[in-house]
Design a protein around this nucleic acid. Structure first.
Ligand SMILES: [Mn+2]
Ligand SMILES: [Mn+2]
Ligand SMILES: [Zn+2]
Ligand SMILES: [Zn+2]
Lengths: 131, 131
DNA sequence: TTTAAATTTGTAATTATTACATTTTTATTA
DNA sequence: TAATAAAAATGTAATAATTACAAATTTAAA
């Protein structure tokens, strides 16, 4: 595994889950799905591994207003949209660098997050079709 | 109180705390400070009141990566910067409307959050002075 | 193969938040 | 004003997320 982390089986599977699913899952989602394949997996290992991946900058936490921590293996700059109907978190492209932030000119910015909330296209369509 | 909420004493004090302090406090901070003045205050009341103010759109939750909910009585559009040294959350002006988001053109956006993390000017100065 | 180091596990502790029944306060009406 | 009803606040218990930590297991090194 990259960044000097030893690639144990649980670690590989957890990162693989994040990369392939791209659902910005919670610890619970990761654990519930992987425990089928790795019956000895513990939730503590999921927490440990995610925190390890975060300190290695391979994984990021999705900023949100909810008190549910969601994880993302895409560490490139992009925004998140959470649908309040279906709960899904969508990625979207956004040029965060284009934003002028004079107020922070003497601050050291390490990470930028853009988080929107609303109703996704699919849920809007469903509402229309019900009428 | 605005928006049809009856202005009880705890409600007034909680909103007043948010407006005057502007520190984006946690429930714990609000409770710990106000209980000095209102000895019968309960933490549940703080939670109830904040949730009430949120549904009335008088108060917003600050989006972040931490699992600590922080509240803000400034519901106008602005960004938040969290200093990882001192923990303070700074407001900054940002023109969120300037961001193009073609990916979300068929989505209904209800709320936009911009959250930065890094080191604030004051903490950077302190680090320099120690050298 | 022995030994040491790293990783994983399970349980307990901590913390944040909500649920809910009871009490208190406030407003309404006789 | 006194009785009543409605709203708000309180305290405790329940739930859920996360971390702490010691013991067990696995992996790597000698
Ligand atoms: Mn993402
Ligand atoms: Mn603010
Ligand atoms: Zn949706
Ligand atoms: Zn600082």
């Amino acid at each position: 595994m990259e960044h000097g982390i030893k690639p144990s089986y649980p670690r590989i599977k957890i990162l693989e889950y994040l990369i392939t699913k791209r659902s910005h899952p919670t610890v619970d989602e990761i654990y519930s799905n992987l425990v089928k394949e790795i019956p000895t997996l513990s939730k503590t290992t999921v927490y440990n591994t995610l925190n390890l991946l975060i300190s290695a900058n391979i994984v990021r936490v999705v900023a949100s207003e909810e008190n549910e921590t969601r994880y993302d293996a895409d560490v490139t700059s992009h925004g998140h949209f959470k649908c309040e109907k279906c709960g899904a978190i969508y990625d979207f492209r956004i040029d965060v660098g284009a934003l002028k932030t004079d107020d922070l000119k003497n601050f050291k910015i390490k990470e930028k997050n853009v988080y929107y909330r609303g109703i996704c296209e699919e849920c809007l369509d469903n509402i229309e079709n019900k009428i």
